[in-house]
Design a protein around this nucleic acid. Structure first.
Lengths: 216, 216
DNA sequence: CGGGAAGTGGAGGTAAGCTCTCCTCTTCGA
DNA sequence: TCGAAGAGGAGAGCTTACCTCCACTTCCCG
């Protein structure tokens, strides 16, 4: 099985184009985009996509792996930071940034259908590191003691939602919400200055209007 | 037009049944449920629903009005509270509770399509009161000064999301997230004790699995 | 109590939108 | 040069929802 004959040059080029397009489109609009959209964006026909990837999930998987590795690397890097608070918040900000910049990644972390095992595996790689970051920060008295390990992904979820809604309007707005959440989990009652401006009225209205399928 | 002849007794009964069923189903599962579901839940045919309400939006509107009134009443009651922090947090908790307990209400506040004007009108009734609550709390030094008026609904959005995901599993879990958020907007670095327990592993797994259409 | 108006149910018309297949035509490369 | 690999994209087939239509039932006035 592993002895796959190399693809023809044009096929290889198209494969790369599909992956690039999928990465981009998933990041922008989430996993709910149709393969037709991705094919169009890649400048190929749908048939070509299906020739390369048995189905949509295979395509998602091909992109997902790498992102998980990056998340794990982030966790490891955060554990290297001496200051426990700094380490924990670096991890949180990094995870949120990844999700804010890549809606597909955020969606992938929530899959229930096929690909569920892959997500479970991913969580099992990240969770122990996250827990270590959390307990270390709690033992240092930096993070409130009553925060549970399962509260942490919920915070991610919140930021991800806000990022989805403001991505096209104010791509950094999510940092305000994360700032509030991080100050809220501090045991020392910090008030971190807001890193970005608030929304103006127009941006707010836009963000609140839910995207009822497709454009306006 | 306004001189509508009274409905026949059975029709009136069915109308009430439809409204009751719609209220219940919308609250549980949001505005995305089909009218077929509502009709079944009310024990009538779809045709009967459409005889009474020209379309789905009319049905939503009929229920929405009253909920807005309750939100406005909550804001007014919160303004009656002397302590500005207490007033503001009472409002926040109340708004979040309304959305946590009624997913349809939460959805309705985000409508873009038809019913948009009604939502805009609702916002215009609530916004001035919310702003008053906020600035009063900020002037008293209770709420961080860099919080903007448009950040407040974003907090609601976050809590609404968490409530949606945990409604069937741990109906009060959202209060933990709101607690974090409220502590995060305090200018005085409060650490309010968590009002409810955290999720256990199983509940967490359940909550993270996105509801890809219909049941499990 | 009888008849016509009002009301009812739910199958199915209509419309989207999606995933994935199929088959003809094109392109690569030994 | 020519066979095999690849490409494209129309459309099959599925799902899901909103809403209509009309034969049948129920109410209620005279």
């Amino acid at each position: 099985m592993s002895t796959t004959r190399p693809l023809r040059a044009d096929a290889e080029r198209n494969r790369a184009r599909i992956l690039a397009a999928a990465s981009e489109v998933f990041a922008e609009r989430g996993l709910d985009v149709s393969l037709d959209d991705i094919a169009a964006h890649a400048g190929v026909g749908v048939g070509t996509v299906y020739r390369r990837f048995p189905d949509k999930d295979a395509l998602i998987d091909a992109l997902f792996e790498d992102k998980i590795d990056r998340a794990v690397a982030l966790a490891d890097a955060s554990l290297e930071i001496e200051d426990p608070w700094e380490g924990f918040t670096t991890f949180m900000r990094g995870m949120c940034r990844m999700q804010a910049q890549d809606r597909g990644f955020k969606d992938a972390l929530l899959l229930r259908g096929p690909g569920r095992e892959r997500v479970a595996a991913a969580r099992e790689r990240i969770a122990p590191r996250a827990i270590k970051l959390l307990t270390r920060a709690q033992e240092a008295g930096a993070v409130r003691a009553d925060l549970g390990p399962f509260d942490v992904p919920m915070i991610n979820l919140c930021v991800g939602l806000i990022a989805d809604r403001t991505r096209d309007i104010a791509p950094d707005y999510w940092e305000r919400v994360l700032t509030i959440l991080i100050d809220g989990i501090s045991a020392q009652g910090r008030t971190t200055p807001m890193p970005v401006e608030q929304l103006d009225r127009e941006a707010f209205t836009e963000a609140m209007a839910s995207p009822r399928r497709r454009r306006a």
